[in-house]
Design a protein around this nucleic acid. Structure first.
Lengths: 241, 241
DNA sequence: ACGTTCATAATTGGATGCATCATCGTCGCC
DNA sequence: GGCGACGATGATGCATCCAATTATGAACGT
């Protein structure tokens, strides 16, 4: 592990402060699972790693705290939040409602470019699933690709809703849960993946067919099912904190 | 305007940092409209007012920025965000969906104490509206009371949904819009207020009657209408920024 | 052996200092 | 008179410093 500055963090794109960049880096690491749940985030260590002082690190941790990603105990420090099955179900329920609503809006408002991206996303996913086997590493890599494809599919629909505040709110919800949770739950489970693909197909068909009500219904059901699988996986694996 | 420390901010309830308290104070002031849209929030001035250093003020402003309440321009400072009619419609649409969902859940889960609070809220509102007239100041005061009563009604339903993450998300949305907007739109408009009361009655009746689907539908419609009135008011009064 | 006490180290919270950037008025020049 | 360079001024962003709090661990007594 590098203790010297891992990159030049004291200069970057203009209009962006150092703490903004620290926030982005830590968000990514936590969401990716590089920093495990319950880990302490020390001012000193992070400052040293990035070659900066503790001040912007402190600000970054405050922001992550406001976003619900870490918890700050006064005079003790910041640690990465874990999530119980209950938390995951609650966040997922909210997300299911909002993305369902987004699908409804998107059905009316989606444009050709977005339609194309949507279809590419779930078709890429379909090709991926065809060749679903191989070694453990293959499965890990495929799960990663699945996560990206999945994200692309959902993102384009949310974007196509045309409601920017809705987009922000959903992004906020996504940020509360580490991604590796959901795709870890799916990795190596061909049945779940196939069901997922079928649901995406149904949603895409509803949107293309201009059936807004159906699109909403399917999207909500899809996310509820997907989320329930994740919540169960967390509860069984006992990796909650 | 006091330039000396307005209160003893260097000590307070344990478990809470100074910046947390600054965040709370500024949130309240901005939501109440004490600090107008577009106003600059200066480190030095705030630090002096609260009798603290600039460091916790900076952290507070960064948190408000993350919450979408202020915008920080690098090397220029933080200013209070304004909202266009479009923003208000978008936020309101999201809120209408989520509170509709909350009403649906609440219908199944609300307990007796919460039911009582809910009824008190809209009944208090009803009494208020009976005597709706008087001088301009009276109307202002009544609008203020209406805002509180309104907030109590919605809060108890959201709380009764039993989904804490949903509660957090709705609180987040509420924080994005200054309250004075919505009740300024209603102040002095007896017709709007009466319609509001009727809608609350309908929602309460649906919840009491255990009709979850209806409760949801009415709540969503209620918030959409209410929000549209606010958006129109903002657009006509031209107090957007 | 085990719990308690006290001193020490580690870490955070907040204050202060300093370099950088944006703004604004003035001066000089065309 | 108008326009651009330039320096003063004020504010921010970050680094550094100090105080307050918590964790750690050894010494001690039971």
């Amino acid at each position: 592990m590098a203790t010297f500055p891992s990159a030049n963090f004291s200069q970057g794109p203009p209009g962006e402060s150092i703490s903004d960049r620290i926030v982005a880096v830590l968000q990514r690491r936590i969401l990716a699972g590089e920093i495990p749940i319950g880990a302490w985030l020390r001012h000193g260590a992070l400052a040293e790693e990035f070659g900066i002082s503790r001040t912007p690190v402190r600000e970054a941790l405050r922001i992550l705290n406001a976003q619900g990603i870490v918890t700050i105990d006064l005079h003790r420090g910041a640690r990465v939040n874990g999530h119980s099955g209950k938390d995951i179900r609650e966040i997922g329920a909210v997300r299911a409602e909002l993305e369902g609503y987004a699908a409804e809006l998107a059905t009316e408002r989606i444009n050709d470019a977005q339609l194309k991206r949507m279809q590419e996303a779930w078709q890429g996913f379909g090709e991926l699933i065809q060749q679903f086997d191989g070694t453990e590493e293959d499965q890990q890599r495929q799960a990663q690709q699945w996560a990206e494809s999945n994200h692309a599919f959902h993102s384009v629909i949310v974007e196509a809703s045309g409601n920017h505040q809705l987009e922000l709110t959903i992004a906020e919800l996504r940020r509360r849960l580490p991604h590796n949770l959901s795709y870890a739950a799916y990795a190596g489970n061909a049945r779940l993946l196939r069901r997922n693909l079928e649901q995406h197909e149904g949603i895409a068909a509803a949107i293309i067919g201009h059936n807004a009500r159906l699109a909403r219904k399917l999207m909500t059901a899809h996310l509820r099912a997907s989320n329930e699988a994740t919540a169960r996986w967390v509860e069984n694996r006992g990796s909650r904190v």
